[in-house]
Design a protein around this nucleic acid. Structure first.
Length: 692
DNA sequence: CGGCAATGTGTTTTT
DNA sequence: CACATTGCCG
């Protein structure tokens, strides 16, 4: 095989196939190349059975990319290699050994909204004040405990106050509750396999024999549970290669412990260490900026990235008037790039918080530049979509009380809180689920509907099943009856959901309900399910990790936003913010633009923030800044006519799309055009559109 | 039970 | 600001 593309260090890392290897890989130093080449090397040069290899990544995106690359190098042998995220690996193990853990086969995966619902209900049932016992806070505490593999009883032992004692109680009830529902949360996907392995050494042994070779990406972001899982799997053969970079540890808030990487040598005394410091991705200037920023962190191992690449352009710095002006500036720069031949897919706008995408979206809509927002869950968060998914989940697992509660009265069936309370009482007396406890009343009608769908659902496609649900439950009819424009949008969304299931079927052939639910629980980002070609990417810096773009914009570089206000008082968190900034900067290959705004609308108030300290940390000689300009260059009045107001139902005409009807009106108009164009969003007051 | 209005309430990052 | 929850009334 061709190993000539690797440098000496990379080659060294690839060839160390036996025993533990720690690869300290700086940003852009080719770690993905090393990992994938190593996988191929194991199979092609060492004759290792691909079935014996396990590669673990953090994100679905990274797993997908690795699969594609390995497929290119190995052909269909690649399918035998287990390449997955921690969570999907956990699920795989659970689905094989559910019985040993006291679960039934048809497990439901709870997302963080589901867990919140459960915790709220527990707090209510315990007659606690939810202002003191904040469900969100408690949910996070329970999750942290689980990620550190602390059981409720252990948690109780550490409880030093009444408050903590109550949390212990909630934690216990929560665990009992989800188990009774035959469901697991995200954290369980990690800790249940650990429990399984500890209780059944023979099963662990099986997996150790199967996965003789382990490769782990982003090791600095492993939390305790992930760490233990890897440790267990690798302890027999110790053929484990981990790749990581302390400077890119950005998941501390989720329990990630970058010390796992520092402790690697202690955990595996025979470990070999390889340092990758040559960067192939970015220009010299971009790297200089990255180094300038990260060197301010105290808690790190000295390391300096270098590159043979050219110095490149200076880093642009622009201070805008407000958040809209900021978006408009970026928009203008994007247009220039495109005009000069850049592909839209080579451009990314990165930000600290999801909420920041909105202004950018408006600006892009304004100019009709296609884009995608990565990691936005708003599609799956819509009521009608959640309802539909709940029906699917309930069909799959009748014990899923959370889903049942969600849809038992959707559409309205005169089943209110009182009925549900009575049902809940019955269920708990009989030690069974809500669904199974139903034996009369209006609830029985509901149960019959579900049973009826079940009876008809044999041998039909997923898309047909969705149709069946929409029809049989009356969801569709109710929305159609409403005749409001809002209902129309909901129906549209349900249609879009069907197009997602269809594309699943096209890609994978027949897909079972089980597989589909698994996929959308683990990959909740709609964008991952679509084929987006040439569009500009908007995303949080967290989502951008591991990716690279020719042209990167980092927006909102202001004190209180980035670094975030909540981090300012905590040195460790501030260092994590700085690492985050380092990650953002090192995504860029050719050009990097830093932007912030003097004023920003936040929670309805206008705030004036200072420029981010991270900008001060950069040596001015690398910057091409235009901060002198005081006035907003963007004259809103010229572009947008604020005097026009639209309301749903208004007829409009668009330069390109022709006639349409307003479905929803806000700052962004949702307009239904002819069949050919469908529903399109356009900025209110945009010059391309006018009232008829 | 269902719908609407008033009244809080709180927003970092994700598998 | 935007949303979620609560409270009140038909």
């Amino acid at each position: 095989m061709d190993l000539t593309k690797l440098n000496d260090k990379q080659l060294e890392a690839v060839k160390m196939t036996e025993g533990p290897v720690l690869i300290l890989a700086g940003a852009g130093s080719g770690k993905t190349r090393v990992l994938t080449t190593k996988v191929a090397y194991l199979v092609l040069e060492q004759g290792i059975n691909p079935y014996n290899i396990l590669a673990i990544t953090f994100t679905n995106k990274a797993a997908k990319e690795m699969k594609e690359r390995v497929l290119k190098m190995l052909g269909k042998d690649a399918y035998k290699i287990q390449i997955s995220t921690f969570h999907s690996l956990g699920l795989l193990i659970l689905k094989t050994h559910y019985h040993n853990l006291g679960f039934e086969k048809n497990l439901t995966i709870l997302d963080s909204d589901d867990t919140l619902t459960i915790i709220k209900k527990i707090i209510k049932d315990m007659n606690l004040d939810s202002k003191i016992y904040n469900p969100r806070v408690i949910r996070n505490k329970i999750s942290s405990a689980k990620n550190e593999i602390i059981s409720p009883s252990e948690y109780g032992k550490f409880a030093s106050s009444d408050y903590e004692q109550i949390i212990t109680e909630i934690y216990e009830k929560y665990e009992r509750k989800i188990k009774n529902n035959n469901s697991v949360d995200f954290d369980d996907l990690l800790i249940l396999p650990i429990k399984l392995f500890k209780e059944n050494p023979n099963i662990l042994h099986e997996y150790q024999e199967r996965f003789k070779y382990l490769l782990v990406d982003e090791y600095q972001d492993t939390n305790e549970a992930q760490y233990v899982l890897i440790k267990l799997l690798s302890s027999k053969y110790q053929n484990i290669s981990v790749v990581g970079d302390i400077d890119q540890s950005i998941y501390g808030f989720r329990g990630a412990n970058y010390r796992n990487i520092l402790n690697f040598e202690k955990d595996y005394p025979k470990a070999n260490i390889v340092l990758l410091e040559e960067n192939y991705r970015s220009t010299g200037n971009i790297l200089n900026v990255a180094n300038d920023i990260i060197k301010n962190n105290k808690k790190r191992k000295e390391k300096k990235l270098w590159t043979k690449n050219e110095e490149g352009l200076k880093i642009k710095y622009h201070r805008a008037y407000d958040e809209q002006d900021e978006a408009h500036y970026v928009m203008g720069e994007i247009k220039k790039l495109i005009k000069n031949g850049a592909k839209k897919s080579e451009i990314a706008v990165l930000y600290r918080t999801n909420a920041q995408s909105r202004n950018m979206e408006e600006a892009l809509l304004n100019e009709n530049v296609p884009y995608k927002v990565v990691g936005s869950f708003y599609f799956y968060n819509r009521k009608e979509i959640k309802d539909l998914i709940s029906y699917l989940k309930l069909l799959y697992n009748a014990n899923d009380d959370v889903s049942l509660m969600r849809v038992i009265n959707v559409p309205k069936r005169q089943i209110g809180p009182k009925t549900i309370q009575a049902l809940a009482l019955k269920a708990s007396e009989k030690h069974t689920s809500l669904y199974k406890a139903i034996d009369g009343g209006k609830e029985l009608e509901f149960k019959k509907i579900i049973e009826n769908i079940k009876a008809q659902s044999e041998d039909i496609s997923l898309t047909d099943l969705v149709d069946l649900i929409l029809n049989e439950t009356g969801m569709k009819k109710e929305l159609e009856r409403e005749k409001t424009l809002e209902a129309e949008v909901r129906l549209e969304n349900l249609e879009e959901f069907k197009s997602i299931t269809k594309s699943f079927e096209e890609k994978n052939g027949i897909i079972s309900l089980e597989e589909f639910l698994e996929e959308i629980s683990l990959v909740s980002d709609v964008e991952e399910h679509k084929n987006n070609n040439d569009v500009v990417t908007l995303m949080t810096i967290h989502s951008a990790k591991g990716l690279e773009f020719e042209h990167v914009f980092i927006i909102g570089l202001e004190e209180n936003l980035f670094p975030h206000a909540n981090a300012l008082d905590y040195p460790d968190e501030l260092e994590e913010e700085r690492r985050l900034c380092y990650v953002a900067v090192t995504r860029a290959k050719k050009s990097l633009t830093l932007v912030n705004a003097k004023r920003r609308l936040l929670y309805g108030n206008v705030n004036a923030n200072l420029p981010s300290r991270f900008i001060d940390e950069i040596d001015a000689k690398y910057l091409d800044s235009d901060v002198k300009e005081e006035k907003p260059k963007f004259d809103k009045e010229a572009m947008i006519d604020d005097t026009i107001t639209y309301k749903p139902g208004d007829k409009v005409i668009h330069d390109k799309y022709g006639e349409g009807i307003i479905i929803a009106a806000g700052n962004i108009l949702t307009i239904a055009f002819s069949q050919k164009y469908g529903i399109i969003k356009i900025m209110k007051g945009h010059k391309s559109i006018r009232k008829v």
